[in-house]
Design a protein around this nucleic acid. Structure first.
Lengths: 143, 143
DNA sequence: GTCAGTGCAAACCCTTTGCAGAAAG
DNA sequence: CTTTCTGCAAAGGGTTTGCACTGAC
């Protein structure tokens, strides 16, 4: 009856291995952050990650969460989603896909790559290379 | 030889009329902001707008610039572009189009609607309505 | 022992807010 | 005269930084 009190966490082993695969040294805090973050496909802000790590009974500082999420994004473990000037979301789904962003609730929902196709991608400006394509469909509550 | 020292400004009359058309009371500051902002197709941050208004010899406060840009966006005079967690850009081109965002330089460039087509727009989640679609192609300097 | 990672608090920066004074109609 | 707008400065909130401490190898 109480097996759902705590959100499922990724095992420490698995988390550490996953970080190693991305050439990230699996320190204690990074592993704890990975355990909550990578447990499922989700979109979390830095603050939410901090809360989840603490809720799981581990201690991390705010600075480390920010540093770590930035590192994870750099290394490709997660993807930054910028839809709101107030906070950055980290998306654990790194495959090609897009998003609905509910401006009223702040909720972010995935749109599979198969549900939306981009035709005729334009060439990038000279001297630059493409890094990624973000498609955001902004929605709001009816009325 | 000195006709380019000052960026071209929209005439006061034109600026005021344009605001009225969007049901915005054309007060002094709003008109001055509109004159620099709407002079051409461009992407400006609030800070840049503040600097431009001051450079044009007019006085405005930071708060008024923020309030005014927010108002303009609400009324549809400009479009907010959120590509950078650090600042919001205001785009004077309100027709359907997309953007390149150079993450190294912070530069925003338009992509005409004719250069990129979206196929198979998915239906929005129940209880919500679409407000807009943003396509951002993130680019960076080669090497 | 050396170098990288972490924690804390303070600094930062963009943006918003509260409120008194000014301007618009 | 009433309502809305503006300016200033202060507050806000997410993110970053500086620096001493800790941990990894």
């Amino acid at each position: 009856m109480n097996e759902h009190r705590q959100p499922a966490l990724l095992g420490e082993q698995q988390a550490a291995e996953r970080l190693s695969r991305f050439h990230i040294l699996p320190t204690q805090q990074r592993v704890q952050i990975a355990r909550v973050l990578l447990a499922r496909d989700q979109h979390l802000s830095a603050d939410q990650v901090l809360d989840l790590v603490k809720a799981a009974g581990n201690r991390v500082s705010k600075a480390t969460v920010y540093n770590t999420l930035g590192l994870f994004a750099d290394k490709g473990v997660v993807r930054e989603v910028i839809v709101d000037p107030h906070r950055v979301f980290y998306d654990t789904n790194t495959s090609v896909h897009h998003h609905f962003y509910n401006v009223d609730t702040g909720e972010l929902t995935d749109i599979g790559a198969d549900q939306l196709r981009l035709e005729g991608l334009p060439g990038v400006p000279p001297g630059t290379v493409a890094e990624g394509v973000d498609v955001i469909i902004r929605i709001r509550q009816r009325h």
